[in-house]
């Protein structure tokens, strides 16, 4: 294992939403701070920095990860997905994002990035979730604005829509 010098900055390279990025970080720098302040990907938010609120959730090498509990140095060479990578293009929202907008599943939007990442990751693997499963999945996220129900509703709607569009593609 490489030993990093505590007081030096080290280069960290990773793939962020499909594009290579690189910057420098002290060994103690959190991944959340690295993404936000070094890379400028400020869509990932920080609500507690102790792993409870879920706002900072991202995907690292296919695994849901709290970026506030991860060091930047740990993800050198990893593939990372964040909320900035969810939309199919700059002027269009994805199915899940649209469902959030339709259902008023966000108010201040501060918690939203983490919730979207958890759902995006989960729905890709569980195309037909029940309400209870969604509630269980999202119990690791705190939202202070919405009372949660519209989020659950949006998730279920997006799941149904994604499933039917997949069916159409495979039928075709």
């Amino acid at each position: 294992m490489t030993r990093l010098k505590a007081d030096a900055r080290h280069s960290v390279r990773l793939t962020l939403n499909g594009k290579p990025v690189q910057s420098e970080a002290e060994p103690r720098m959190l991944l959340s701070d690295f993404l936000r302040h070094q890379i400028g990907a400020t869509g990932t938010h920080v609500g507690c920095e102790h792993g409870v609120c879920g706002a900072c959730t991202i995907v690292v090498d296919g695994m849901l990860t709290r970026s506030c509990l991860t060091l930047a140095a740990q993800v050198d060479g990893c593939e990372i997905q964040t909320v900035e990578g969810l939309a199919p293009s700059a002027d269009r929202l994805g199915v899940l994002q649209q469902a959030f907008r339709r259902n008023h599943a966000l108010q201040c939007g501060f918690c939203t990035a983490g919730i979207l990442m958890s759902l995006d990751h989960y729905l890709a693997r569980n195309p037909a979730p029940t309400e209870a499963e969604i509630r269980d999945l999202l119990s690791g996220h705190l939202c202070r604005c919405t009372g949660y129900t519209p989020i659950i509703q949006a998730a279920l709607e997006a799941a149904a829509q994604l499933a039917s569009s997949k069916k159409e593609t495979s039928d075709a």
Binding site: G43, L86, L106
Partner: peptide, 21 residues
């Protein structure tokens, strides 16, 4: 009417502008 919010597209795609952003 419950029209869609103009605020949402930016917030849903990580382009909100909160103070620390």
């Amino acid at each position: 009417r419950s029209i869609e919010r103009v605020e949402d597209a930016a917030l849903l795609s990580g382009h909100g502008r909160f103070i620390d952003d």
